[in-house]
Amino acid sequence: MLVPTVHFMSGLPRSGSTLLAALLRQNPTIIKAGHISPVTPMMLKLSSVMVEGEYQTEFDRDTRHRLLRGILFNYYGGDSSLNANNLSVIIDNSRLWCTRLGLINAIFPEAKIICCVRDPVWIIDSFERVMQQNPLLSSKIVPIEHRGNLHSRVDSLLSANGAFGFCWRAFTEAFYSDFAHNLIVVDYDVLVHEPARTLSILGDVLNLPAWKYDFENVHFEEPVKFDESLNSPGLHKVRPRVEVPRRRPVLPPDIVSKLAGNRFWCDQRKKVGRAVVIA
């Protein structure tokens, strides 16, 4: 029975993962690629049952792997549904995957992890623009006690558990880990400036069949309820065509100076023998 190929998407927020997923879904080989899924937390909860407490002796290695793989396949419709469509690739999206490369390597050893990244200045700028566009809704991207002014919002985003800070630490950990060779790092600036080259390299690394992607007609069904739950409508909105954003940052100079120059993945000396970097 045909089993779909599985890959993963992770990396930094506001870095083009939704756009990239929308483009990849034009390729009929890819059955699922989209916004953040609950697969990772479901796996972690089940893992805690299997390795801790009174039931841990009931699960051997093969059983653990079978159950964890089953979570992903059943979330996306079950084997019969997937195979009936004769399509072959699932790309599951979660910011947590960068912290679970060992788990991926154990249960999906052939999988790659696409990490979308971007200059931190423009990530924080993008978050701030989302929050400024919906002032009456008081976005839940940052805790309510930190929403009072721009500097406090930025401090919250950069904190260890903040929307940016957590992902930055997770990606940095992954980039320098023993599993870094499974990463495909996609820089946002390259994606929007050279989408054809980006998709070509990505297709080669993932062994996808060649496809002519349409960069002038990009469609993505927004997760409206997810965005509304964060009081941030339009958080995952994708423009109908791939284009380079033209705008000045809304961040003051002190914050820009603090964040600038942190695109460490572009350093050629740090790529040798490690991740595939499209930058």
Rank of each mutant, 00 (worst) to 15 (best):
R14N: 11
S15G: 04
T18D: 13
A21L: 02
A22F: 01
T29F: 08
V39N: 08
P41A: 10
L44I: 02
K45Q: 11
S48T: 08
E54A: 11
T57L: 06
E58N: 10
E58Y: 00
D60E: 09
D60T: 14
I71H: 13
F73M: 15
D79P: 13
N83T: 02
A84L: 05
L87K: 11
S94P: 00
S94T: 09
C98W: 00
R100A: 14
L101F: 12
G102V: 05
G102Y: 15
N105F: 07
I107S: 11
I107K: 09
K112W: 05
R118S: 03
P120G: 07
W122N: 01
D125W: 04
F127K: 11
K140S: 14
V142G: 03
I144A: 10
I144V: 02
H146A: 15
G148M: 04
N149M: 02
S156R: 14
F179E: 09
D187F: 15
D189Q: 07
P195Y: 14
P195R: 05
L206P: 00
N207A: 03
K212Q: 10
E228Y: 03
P240C: 15
R247N: 07
P249K: 02
P252V: 12
P253H: 07
P253K: 02
N262M: 14
W265S: 10
A275E: 08
V277L: 03
V277S: 06
